[in-house]
Design a protein around this nucleic acid. Structure first.
Lengths: 212, 212
DNA sequence: ACCGTAGGTTAACCACGGTTCACTTGGGGC
DNA sequence: GCCCCAAGTGAACCGTGGTTAACCTACGGT
């Protein structure tokens, strides 16, 4: 292993950085748990299963997390934070044209869904298993991400009310997040194109093309 | 209560008919369980909860079902059967025009989703909790229903491969089945129109309008 | 060389929840 | 009127699984 001068012993705020290279045990656990949770649902997965998936025994988990629920909580919090931050950055980078902003958001969500099918599955299946406090925070983050979409869709179709835009946004999420169900049907690039096209078409349905 | 000559004591094949009027305890249990399962997930709902929801104690459930899993199994089997049968009938009644068939299928699924948000939620969240045999049967039924869609989409866009059509079908399901997430955003009729429009637009995206 | 500590291990603990049991009861058919 | 059975009830049983405890073992820093 390459010389690492002094890798900041443990970095107490490790909650956010994912050291993609040599993942810490903590990261390994989160990854493995995500996959297991996606396959069977968090309640059906035992701590022993998680441990086994990373090559340790069940109770070893408690050296890294306060409880099994804490694993799920951190997982869902990270997802929501990544989506919100990514969504905002995406819109900001897309210029002023609402259509371009929508296309960018769609591309962003499609990429995320194709790269993280497990997280997508867990997010909307196991949110209810979280404690009240964690669940509330995740929902807050999700809501803000949704509002990002609502704003863009609203600018694209100023005639539509907020409720309509919100329903439209949820529908588009449902469409894009269907990827876990159509697992290996198509190569990734093709799937991405297909979903992007469908999502844009759906989001813009009923919207007359702007003046231009 | 109106005179009922001889209502066939218990009807041993009660699995399919839902006596909407004065639902049998069995039906009540299925309904209540569906709602509870949708809210919290089947593993998080105890038999006591189900019992309480219909005004009896937990163990009373076992007078009507062999196990808690059997409740879930029958629930999911019924849904899949209803969808498959309904889907086939819908296509058959829609004439020969693929576009009309698609519109009919979409309308059918939208109605189902809006009328049974709990079932929609349970179906794709708790399928994994079923025993192997039941799960396999449900999946068989679901697959056949999907193939109904695939066939229609394929006729609509003969250039597309089966894989593509399947992915498109799943995406449309995801779109329509998003209703549980956008709960009371819009009045039902408006939501139906919105979803129908979006679903048709999505399903037809990339398809050049036929000759006419 | 010597600790302290991070990270494991195994065994035990304990609560929860599905299931079974023994026992009631109210209503229909003979 | 009597008997039987469907449908409940409360108590007990017991497996599963999250969590804790007590103990071990490498390292990395002094």
């Amino acid at each position: 292993m390459p010389s690492e001068p002094a890798p900041t012993p443990v970095a107490p705020d490790s909650a956010l950085h994912l050291d993609a290279a040599r993942p810490s045990r903590r990261e390994q656990i989160l990854r493995a748990a995500a996959q297991l949770f996606a396959e069977r649902g968090s309640r059906a997965v035992g701590v022993d299963d998680i441990g086994a998936a990373v090559g340790v025994t069940g109770p070893a988990i408690y050296r890294h997390f306060a409880s099994k629920d804490a694993v799920l909580a951190e997982m869902l919090l990270r997802i929501s934070e990544r989506l919100l931050a990514g969504g905002r950055a995406t819109v900001a980078a897309a210029g002023d044209d609402p259509a371009a902003q929508l296309a960018a958001l769609v591309a962003f969500q499609v990429d995320f869904a194709l790269d993280n099918p497990s997280l997508i599955t867990v997010q909307d299946r196991d949110l209810g298993q979280l404690g009240d406090s964690d669940a509330a925070q995740v929902r807050r983050l999700q809501r803000r991400y949704v509002e990002e979409w609502v704003a863009v869709i609203g600018r694209l179709d100023p005639a539509a009310g907020t409720r309509t835009c919100r329903a439209r946004a949820h529908a588009v999420f449902g469409l894009i997040n269907s990827t876990p169900h159509s697992a290996g049907q198509l190569p990734r690039a093709q799937m991405a194109d297909l979903l992007t096209g469908m999502a844009v078409a759906a989001a813009s349905s009923g919207v007359r093309p702007t003046s231009s």
